[in-house]
């Protein structure tokens, strides 16, 4: 959620006021008492209760999200309201719980680890928030060809099929078996009927280097072999998740080296200048694939923090209840 949004202003002001009041109260009690406030002092207990309740509330966003269907039928507040509350109350919890811990040191080992856990949860959330401020804008700017994240591999397989068709047509190698591939690619694209389009295209003499380069460099970059094999299998026999893979080491990974590579490829095709448009089209496909790789990286940055934030939050809540139970023994 963008912080630079007028709808966040009331929340920002409210949190600033509550945090200021809490800090002033804590400072006043500390200065007035002349000693460091102990754990049973009113401000620290109050901050602890408030902070704990906030943490519990923060956790409720999880079931709220999982049971989103309830939101359609019961008035439990809009998703945005929950998100803003999660965000701003989460930010408010830092001064409250730090003051509850007596600023520093944080007491015994349980309190210490609880505070460490809280700070880890807090800063992982802040990291996520920071990513949400930066990355969507970067994706908008740098990735005009982005697709739906879960469809990246599927679209890549389609792009490889398309590139293969262009190369085979250019080099005059499109036989009956390859036509099957073309037909298959159309049918998996979800059309009602599998149709084969007649392509008026003549093979270009001396364009064999294009086929060689496609097989050795371009095909693997557009869609790594395991992924391609996964999507070429029939939908009935296809495993649910495609295999994992790393970004292949290739000159096409970087736009500069890719530019040099395609210039070199054109030099190889010096006697087949008519194949240049095909090379340019494949270059465009590679460019889009490069955007997909970058999208994958950015997407993981944008959402990867959740894999830290969520389990730590669960651990925090469990430890918090232990802390409450232990603390109650001292009252």
């Amino acid at each position: 959620m963008l912080l630079n949004d007028s709808k966040n202003r009331p929340w920002m002001i409210a949190v600033a006021i509550v945090a200021s009041v809490a800090i002033l109260w804590f400072a006043y009690e500390t200065i007035h008492g002349g000693v460091r406030l102990n754990g049973r002092s009113t401000p620290r207990v109050a901050f602890g209760i408030a902070g704990g309740l906030i943490c519990l509330f923060e956790m409720l966003i999880w079931p709220r999200k999982a049971l989103r269907k309830w939101g359609q039928k019961f008035p439990i507040g809009s998703t945005q309201l929950w998100m803003r509350a999660h965000l701003w109350l989460g930010l408010l919890s830092l001064p409250l719980l730090v003051m509850h811990g007596g600023i520093y040191p944080w007491g015994g080992s349980l309190s210490f680890w609880l505070m460490v856990l809280f700070l880890a949860v807090f800063f992982s959330g802040v990291w996520g928030l920071a990513m949400q401020q930066i990355i969507p804008g970067k994706m908008l700017k740098d990735l005009p060809g982005e697709t739906i994240y879960s469809q990246i591999d599927f679209v890549s397989a389609q792009m490889r099929i398309e590139a293969e068709r262009i190369v085979l047509l250019t080099c005059g190698k499109l036989g009956d078996d390859q036509l099957d591939v073309v037909t298959h690619s159309i049918s998996v694209a979800g059309k009602a009927r599998a149709t084969t389009t007649k392509v008026a295209y003549e093979a270009i003499p001396n364009s064999e280097p294009l086929l060689t380069e496609f097989k050795s460099v371009i095909a693997g970059f557009l869609c790594p072999d395991p992924i391609f094999a996964h999507y070429l299998s029939s939908p009935q026999n296809r495993p649910k998740n495609p295999p994992r893979y790393r970004v292949p080491f290739s000159p096409l990974r970087d736009s500069q080296t890719a530019f040099v590579y395609f210039r070199g490829l054109k030099l190889l095709l010096d006697k087949a200048k008519a194949a240049y448009p095909a090379v340019d089209t494949i270059g465009d496909l590679c460019d889009r694939r490069r955007q997909f790789y970058q999208q994958r990286r950015l997407h993981r940055l944008l959402h990867g923090w959740l894999s830290v934030h969520l389990p730590l939050s669960i651990a925090l809540i469990i430890l918090m209840w232990v802390h409450v139970f232990v603390s109650l023994q001292y009252l």
């Binding site: 963008l2 999200k65 989103r68 990355i135 969507p136 908008l140 739906i148 879960s150 944008l302 959402h303």
Partner: peptide, 12 residues
């Protein structure tokens, strides 16, 4: 797209 985090909540 400046606000969208591609979380796909809309599709879900």
């Amino acid at each position: 797209l400046e606000k969208c985090t591609r979380c796909d909540e809309c599709s879900k």
